[in-house]
Simulated assay, not measured.
Amino acid sequence: MKNKDGNEVDVLIIPVDANNLFKGEKGVYGDFTAIEVKNKVGDSKDTHLIKQNLPKEVFEKMTDEEKKATPIFGNAILWSRRESEPQEYNEDQFKDVPSEDHDDLPF
Rank of each mutant, 00 (worst) to 15 (best):
E25N: 11
S80R: 12
E65L: 13
S80E: 15
D92Q: 09
S99D: 14
H48G: 06
F73H: 07
R81G: 11
K40Y: 04
V58A: 10
G30N: 04
P15K: 06
K23G: 06
K4A: 15
N3T: 04
I77G: 02
F73D: 02
D103T: 11
D46Y: 10
K56L: 05
I14M: 03
L49R: 08
G30L: 06
N7G: 08
G42N: 05
F59P: 00
K95F: 03
P15D: 10
N39T: 08
N7E: 15
L12E: 09
D64Y: 10
L21G: 01
V37K: 01
D43N: 11
K4P: 00
A76F: 04
G24Q: 04
K2L: 14
S80T: 13
E91T: 09
E83H: 08
A76H: 04
L21Q: 00
I35C: 09
N53D: 07
T47C: 05
K45E: 06
S99P: 00
H48D: 05
K67F: 08
P106S: 01
D46P: 04
N19Y: 00
I72L: 02
V41E: 07
D46S: 10
N7K: 14
V58H: 07
E36Y: 00
P86D: 05
A34Y: 02
K51V: 13
N75C: 12
N39V: 05
F107R: 00
E66I: 05
S80I: 08
V37C: 06
L54R: 02
G30S: 03
V16E: 01
F107M: 07
N75I: 06
V11R: 04
K26E: 06
L105P: 00
T63S: 15
E100H: 12
T70A: 15
P86G: 01
A76D: 00
M62C: 10
E85P: 03
K67T: 08
L105T: 09
S84H: 11
V58T: 12
E66H: 07
Q87C: 08
L12M: 10
R82V: 12
E65W: 01
V97D: 06
D5P: 01
H102C: 10
G27H: 04
H48P: 00
F107V: 03
L54K: 03
M62F: 13
N75H: 15
E60R: 13
F32G: 01
V11F: 06
N53G: 02
M1G: 15
S44G: 04
